[in-house]
């Protein structure tokens, strides 16, 4: 019963919700239904894989982008004038 429900999930609905799914922003039921659909749909899986690779590449741009030392020094100096003992 549950299985037939997930099997019946439309490709259109799956593709429409791929990003919500990848972001983990759906209900547990929808997450399960899409996961089940992707496991057996040869049409949707490549698109899922594409969007996942794309989001991974986006996340990787975070890199370590540390604040320059000068900015750090200025912040600490400002906080000291405001009374913080650093």
């Amino acid at each position: 019963m549950y299985l037939t429900e997930t099997v019946a999930m439309d490709c259109y609905d799956v593709v429409r919700q791929l990003w919500d799914f990848l972001d983990g922003e759906l209900t547990d039921e929808s997450m399960d239904a899409i996961r089940a659909h992707l496991a057996q749909c040869r049409q949707c899986y490549p698109q899922f894989d594409f969007e996942r690779t794309f989001l991974d590449a986006l996340a990787a741009t975070r890199r370590e982008h540390p604040a320059p030392n000068m900015v750090r020094r200025k912040v600490l100096a400002k906080l000291r004038t405001a009374g913080l003992d650093v």
């Binding site: 975070r62 540390p66 604040a67 900015v71 200025k74 912040v75």
Partner: peptide
């Protein structure tokens, strides 16, 4: 501090403006 700087820079897209924003933020 590093995270706030990165976020400030993403908005200002200018290092000097990001510098000001970070100082004021803290």
């Amino acid at each position: 501090l590093d995270d706030v700087y990165r976020f400030a820079l993403s908005m200002t897209r200018d290092e000097s403006d990001a510098d000001d924003v970070v100082q004021e933020t803290f």
